[in-house]
Every structure is written in C-alpha cells, then in structure tokens.
Design a protein around this nucleic acid. Sequence first.
DNA 1: TCGTGTCTTTACCAAATGGTAAAAATTGCC
DNA 2: GGCAATTTTTACCATTTGGTAAAGACACGA
Lengths: 205, 205
Amino acid sequence: MPDGADKKPSRIQQRNRGLILDAALDVFSKHGYRGATLDQIAEAAGLSKPNILYYFDGKEEIHVTLLNQLMETWLDPLVTLDPDGDPLQEILGYVQRKLDMARDLPRESRLFAGEILQGAPRMAPHLVTDLQPLFDEKCAVIRAWMEKGALATVDPRHLIFSIWATTQHYADFDAQVQVLLRDDPDRHGGAAEYLATMFTKLLRP
Amino acid sequence: MPDGADKKPSRIQQRNRGLILDAALDVFSKHGYRGATLDQIAEAAGLSKPNILYYFDGKEEIHVTLLNQLMETWLDPLVTLDPDGDPLQEILGYVQRKLDMARDLPRESRLFAGEILQGAPRMAPHLVTDLQPLFDEKCAVIRAWMEKGALATVDPRHLIFSIWATTQHYADFDAQVQVLLRDDPDRHGGAAEYLATMFTKLLRP
DNA sequence: TCGTGTCTTTACCAAATGGTAAAAATTGCC
DNA sequence: GGCAATTTTTACCATTTGGTAAAGACACGA
C-alpha cells in the first residue's frame, strides 16, 4: 500500500501517481470538483478505477494533492518580485510572467479559479497560511517603492488584484475570448502589449 | 401542465417559477451545474422535487432559463455605452456600472463565470448571437473615439477584456479577496477609486 | 526459480441523484 | 356548492457514482 508516509515510492508508483494527477488536472479543470468523476479520471489516466483508489485514498485526496502542488507554482511569479530591482520593470515582469502562465498552464488556472469561485472549500487554509503573508509582504514592497517616488501611488492591493484578474482572464474565460477574438492570430502578443501599456501608464511616476 | 407556449401563467405559476429560479441561482452559483442537485434547489425554494419538475422539464432547463435571463442583465451596461457621450466619461461610467453589478449581483457573476470556465457548454450560442455583435459594435465605437483623438490609442478588445476582468474579479474571486482584504471596511470604494485611476491614466489622450 | 511483497483486475455495493406515475389536494370559475 | 383544471404529494425507479473486498497477475531480490 502506498499510503501514509512511505519511505521510497517505486518506479511504478511514481509513474502512475503522475498519470493520475495529470488526468485529474484535465478532468477537474474541465468539469469542476463535483462534475468530475473517478471513471473519467481513470479513463484519462489509462487505469482502472480501483487502481486509482490504490494510489489515492479517494476523489478528495486527488483534488487536494493537485491544489497543494498548484499553490507553489501559482505563487512563484510573485515570490520572484525583487525588492531590489527596478520597480516598474519588476511589476511589468510580473505581469508578463503571469500572462505566460495563463497561456502555458490554462488547466492549472482554471482549477484554481473553480476552487475560488465556489468559496475555496478545500483551499481556504492555504490562502491564509501561504498566500496572505506573501501578499502582505509584496504589498509592503510596492508601497515602499511608491513612497520612494519610484512608482505612482495607488493602492497596492487593488494593483495586484488587477494584475491577477487581467492575466488569468485569458485562461479562465478562454471560451469567451475565443469567440470574440476568433481570427486574431496573435492573441497573446496583443494582450501582452496592451497590459504593458496599461500598467506602465498607471505606474510611471 | 405549464409546458410549451401557454397563454397566461397563473398567479401561482409565476410565484413558484420565480421561487425556483431564485433558489436555483443560489445553488448553481455556489456549486456549479453538476455540483447542484434538484434536492438542494427544491429545499431552497421550499417546494418538493417533483413539484419543481412540474414547473420545469428538468435540471438543464432551469439552468438554461437562468442563463437566458442573465444574458440581458449582463450585457445591459455595455448596451448603455453611448457613442455620443463624452468618451472618457462613458468608459469610466461603464467601469463603475460593472463594478456595481459585481457587488449587487455576485450570484449572477459567478453563474456566468462558472459557465464560461467550463467552456460555455450551454451558452456558446448566446455568446455568438448576442455578445459578439454587441462587442464588435462597441469596439468600433471606441476605435472611432481613439481615431478622433478623444482617447489614447489602445486595442479596444483588450481594453474591454480588462474592464470585465477587473470588475468581475471582485465577485468571482470574492473568497480570495475577503481573505486578503480582511479588515478593509470600504473594499468597494477602494476598488472604484483604483479602477477609475487606472483607466483614466490609460485612456486620457 | 522460487517466494514475498507490489500492483491490477473482477465483481460487487450502498448512497445519491435525476426523473416518473398516479393519487390526493387545492384552486377558481359557474 | 359543485366541478373541472391546476397544483402538490406519495411512492417509486433506473442510473450514476464513490468506494470496497478479494482474488489474480506481476516484479524482483535471494
């Protein structure tokens, strides 16, 4: 049994847990927690349902594992924000990294969005322990930049919200964006340019 | 049977259909389509499950009815954008109306977000028939303003996306916003001020 | 190659869920 | 009040779904 705090996961164990988590990310991000079924995950992973339950205690554990893994990836671009860098370039770099993530990891973005949309029932603790301290810390950094006169003064909290909202929008609302931008061959480039302009005009002292 | 194209819905029919739709809006916006159950809707409406099915053909019809009703409300602020008004004031007014809607109709915002997040399986037609023409029309209006020199030039499509993203964020990601802004007594006012600043700096010629 | 521990399958199950049939109650019109 | 039409309840049902038990297949070190 691969339960609990085992010492060494076998080759097979590592491969199958990976297959399952990747399949589950697909299914959960497409249908939401309750909309996803173990059968769908099993089929997508190419394993039988009882076999899935050999590697994970249940549907919820798979979801929680995914959310835990996601948290690190998700916060990384903000962690990278360097208090000693050039303020405007740091912010614009952050915007760009978030936008790239929306393009490269849309499943992760939607998984996260779905969880928050439903009130973060399985992630509220993470928000308080992981996100909140980081958020407060980076708000302080930005506020210091503004007080130094290196950036125009705005509420750093709403600034960060607007960065999250505008970048993640391209992943989370992709179905809508696709309809409205149907024949644009360079959606990503257009978004990148627009957002760089917007945040530059907002923040240039 | 209240099926099909009846002539006049009775008093009871109007009241109960209203109760059901309001309850369903609650439940669907909280748990998503597949996460919502008829039993939950029935209990929230104060009716029995078979009674619910007397008024609606099934779960899907309730959801679709809700989505249809929502579409009009949802697009209204954009419809109101007046080509003959003052360009910057029109845009800022639009932002404000959208932000007010996020505050006053969070259930509707989340219902919409959930539907799009999952690929708009029950709303794709609406997007093409209702949203797309309106979007194109208003993009043209904004582009004309820019060519006239009344607004700084940016891509109107991404401009609209950024307005949607930043305003709806406060409803759709409320669980997150609440954690991060825990003790702010004036979240709405702060957001309004921030967004007005941002779009003014972006668009003022 | 043999045996032990790891992995996979087969055959289930109980609960939840969307939905139905038909009887019972109620409403509203004459 | 009487009666037809509307509304509501009771009693079900079939399917789906998360999960389990236990037998069987397989890997791998001695």
